[in-house]
Write a protein that binds this DNA or RNA. Structure first.
Lengths: 343, 343
DNA sequence: CGTAGATATGACTGCGCAGACATGACTGCG
DNA sequence: CGCAGTCATGTCTGCGCAGTCATATCTACG
């Protein structure tokens, strides 16, 4: 591997000037700049990242803690983060945790700190007990300020709240007497936020709160939840915390003889790409992952590079209720079937 | 930040001994090891990655080139890679490309090389023209040996071939006269492989090859393909290159008045988590992403750490055809509707 | 008891870059 | 014309580790 001095020799300048050129620093004449670039090109020279990081004290990289799942939401957010990180000129390092991992988020953060990242992104905050996560670099959390100890903690919202609210209201506006909720796993911030918004929407209309069924985001758990919901003879509207569970719910309802949306309306969350094509097409909520990631990363980079300035606040992002065929007004005559017992 | 010498001083040893302890080198007495670990713990000491990379010439990190999509296949493989990389003790750096990106895979590889990775993984090879990708570290490609110039190029298969073959055969075994194929974008290796396997399965039975409809992996493109397929009055069986497109195809067929599976059988590919819960539940093919990723990474790490030994071959992985309700024997009396014209 | 090997530790050094500072050439203006 | 300010470049240095080699101690065995 050629080094900076090799380029310098070939271009007839000092190593420092090579460094200047390759870092786009001012005070280099155009002519020298050209010579250096030509020499670097000729030798196939690349700056040595380790040496740069050691000399400058910054690694120019950002670490992200993600969940080891291919779930649409987390995967989309991760891809949004990747693009946003690259746009800021930083490199991306990824560590995943799995639910139930004993070291959890704290362990993942620790491993990123060992790698020397300049900042950390927690993409899907989940509660792994009461652990306090310590970091010596700025941290960006999507959703909620976990118990973090770090120089700067930045929070960027994904706007789940208001939209889960809107999803519930959409069902109520259609005339449903109430809305049942299939929640996500409550250790996830995203799941808690959606549950709270559903609750708030019911409360705003003075409605009581029917029992919540909790799933694990999977279609299988949605199916199980749907079987339980089907025992409710008065059921006409369901809000599921993500699309996969909504699809499972719909399948269970169909198998129980409930038509969707004729008998029961179902709303999902995420707008997965197949949502428009399943039967029936799913009413759902679309999240602007890219915009959220971009905005969050701008805050994080600001926190990294201007450690003493105040942080601007993250803007809210337009979220969108996508109404499709899985929601309709409730049936005229409620079927009034008796409540079946499980077994 | 405390440095190695600080720990050394506290433990009453030399910096070099601290280095030995933290790298688990032999020839350190148990007693000294304890003292050093205690001192490191007390100071909250962490090895400086940049300095170790500079001094040792290895960054202990592996870069992966992925596609900036949340598609189930690529996302699952990425997560499998993350786990596999972590299991080998390396750190993971991620760069994504988008289709149509002018710099393409070569640009992504270049940016990883600048970051100083010890090895590179190309998770979803796509053809970005005839570019020759150059790397000075070993490269692992999932699927196909692209035109690569690197010290070692390792290939690990995802076994798409035989299974796309099996999927087609499953339909033929049910009695269908032929099988139409909704292909993925042909720049993707995975799409070409599935197309070739479908072709081979037809040829093996001496069947002619009906025209292929190409999609872009999305349910929307599957829907468009399904509308075109619905013009074929003799259509009874479809093999789609992924589940999302299969779901789109099913929707289009339903809207065209074809029942699935009564009139037309549809097979997908990937076994996305909702496949079992859509209507009808989807017959599909499950890929062992984790196993493939683990095996591939073992090869890559071998190529990195034993540059002069021969590479063991990657084992084949069990792939699995999952038969669900979307496939059935063809209808007794073919409907024989005339071929409609589009427009 | 003497010497070869294994074991345990330290001193010194350099990896390749960017920061601090020095220096020289040039510009403009009173 | 002289001096301050800008521009352009170079010299020297150290970031914090791991590699190399030297050294000291401990075993084993003839």
């Amino acid at each position: 591997m050629p080094r900076g001095v090799d380029v310098a020799r070939l271009a007839g300048v000092s190593q420092k000037t090579v460094s200047r050129v390759l870092n786009n620093e001012p005070y280099v004449s155009t002519e020298v700049r050209q010579r250096v670039l030509a020499a670097a090109e000729q030798l196939g020279y690349r700056l040595n990242n380790a040496a740069r990081a050691l000399a400058s004290g910054r690694s120019r990289s950002i670490g992200v803690v993600t969940l080891g799942t291919a779930l649409y939401g987390p995967a989309s957010l991760l891809m949004g983060i990747e693009r946003a990180v690259r746009a800021t000129g930083y490199a991306l390092r990824v560590v995943s945790t799995v639910e139930g991992d004993p070291t959890g988020i704290a362990g993942a953060v620790e491993s990123l700190l060992e790698q020397g990242v300049d900042g950390i992104v927690i993409s899907e905050p989940i509660d792994e007990g009461a652990e306090l996560v310590r970091a010596d670099v700025p941290v960006l959390v999507f959703g909620t300020p976990l118990p973090f100890s770090a120089p700067r903690v930045v929070t960027a919202g994904v706007g789940s709240g208001e939209l889960a609210h809107a999803a519930t209201e959409h069902l109520l506006d259609l005339g449903h007497a109430t809305v049942r909720h299939v929640a996500g796993p409550q250790r996830w911030y995203a799941a808690r936020e959606r549950l709270a918004a559903w609750r708030a929407a019911l409360a705003a209309r003075g409605l009581g709160e029917p029992p919540v069924v909790e799933g694990d985001w999977s279609a299988a758990s949605g199916y199980a939840a749907g079987r339980r919901l089907a025992e409710d003879g008065d059921l006409t509207a369901v809000f599921a915390a993500n699309d996969d569970m909504a699809i499972g719910v719909i399948r269970a309802l169909l198998e129980a003889g409930r038509r969707v949306p004729d008998d029961v309306s179902v709303v999902g969350y995420d707008d997965v790409p197949v949502a428009a094509y399943v039967t029936p097409p799913l009413t759902t909520v679309r999240q602007p992952f890219d915009a959220v990631a971009t905005a969050g990363l701008q805050l994080l980079v600001h926190a990294i590079e201007q450690p003493h300035e105040d942080l601007p606040q993250a803007p809210d992002h337009p979220v969108e209720l996508v109404v499709r065929a899985s929601t309709a007004p409730p049936p005229r005559k409620t079927p009034g079937r008796g409540r079946a017992t499980s077994g």
